[in-house]
């Protein structure tokens, strides 16, 4: 049996008495795509914020590769291999596409290079070139990130996350607002990515979730309703009830 890359146990967080996330536990296994789904207000985003260090949990723990990471801030978590993207595109809009990626990659350079010319951050440059090519952004490398199309910005968002060389990638609705064509392309790309890095996804597009995920965690009103393979989730009556109400 392989060890989980990410494990959360009994994770809870309330806001003014409202339990946004309530005792959620699950494991994310290596090189797989695990997706968190659930109706609006199910606590998916809060869950992500708890895992990526934006929020501290009231109870419960987060383990990354077996090490307890509960309560670490986002910067430390990133250095421990947890990278995340955002539901609302969150980039350095007035910097170039290349610089967006390079900034993420240079954070992985040894501390001794922090005060030498950026030209000497060879690791960061190689990494940026790779990411640009991989995400089909090479032609746009010199553009300002703010001038890209929405679909390109969503791709860049993933590229920036990947450039910090994470062990686990948390993607918050990566295809949000994308055209159908772009969505299919992104799905294909995520499948390829999963060979290299473990992915935890929040996604609304149920069709995409079913075709893409190896494992699905269903949340409802802050709690984990069930988890299992896409097929098992699709067949589950409680999931249907959560989405469509009791008929």
């Amino acid at each position: 049996m392989t060890d989980a890359v990410l494990e959360v146990t009994g994770l809870s967080r309330s806001f003014a008495g409202l339990k946004a996330v309530d005792g959620v536990s699950f494991k994310v296994m290596p090189n797989r795509i695990t997706t968190v789904i659930g109706p609006n207000g199910a606590g998916k985003s809060t869950l992500f914020n708890l895992i990526s260090g934006v929020l501290r949990p009231d109870a419960g723990d987060v383990f990354v590769q077996g090490k307890r990471m509960t309560g670490l801030n986002p910067a430390s978590l990133n250095r421990q291999g947890v990278a995340r993207s955002f539901q609302i595109t969150n980039l350095f809009f007035d910097l170039s596409v290349r610089e967006n990626i390079r900034l993420a990659a240079q954070a992985r350079e040894p501390a001794g290079k922090m005060l030498r010319s950026v030209k000497k951050s060879t690791l960061a440059h190689e990494q940026s070139d790779q990411m640009l090519a991989r995400f089909d952004l090479t032609a746009k490398a010199g553009e300002l990130a703010g001038n890209l199309s929405h679909g390109e910005q969503r791709r860049l968002e993933i590229a920036v996350c990947l450039a910090s060389n994470p062990t686990i990638l948390l993607l918050d609705e990566p295809t949000q607002g994308m055209s159908h064509g772009d969505t299919l392309q992104t799905a294909e790309m995520l499948k390829q990515l999963a060979k290299q890095v473990t992915i935890l996804l929040i996604e609304h597009d149920i069709g995409l979730v079913m075709s893409l995920s190896d494992h699905v965690v269903v949340m409802h009103q802050g709690r984990k309703l069930m988890e299992g393979t896409p097929e098992a989730v699709r067949a589950d009556s409680s999931v249907q009830a959560a989405y469509f109400g009791h008929v």
């Binding site: 801030n73 986002p74 990133n78 350095f92 809009f93 922090m114 005060l115």
Partner: peptide
């Protein structure tokens, strides 16, 4: 330098910088 570029990144989007480590 990388340190200076991190400063520029703060002007561009301070909130995102933490998530780059």
């Amino acid at each position: 330098t990388p340190a200076g570029r991190a400063m520029i990144a703060i002007r561009a989007n301070e909130q995102r910088v933490a998530f780059l480590g």
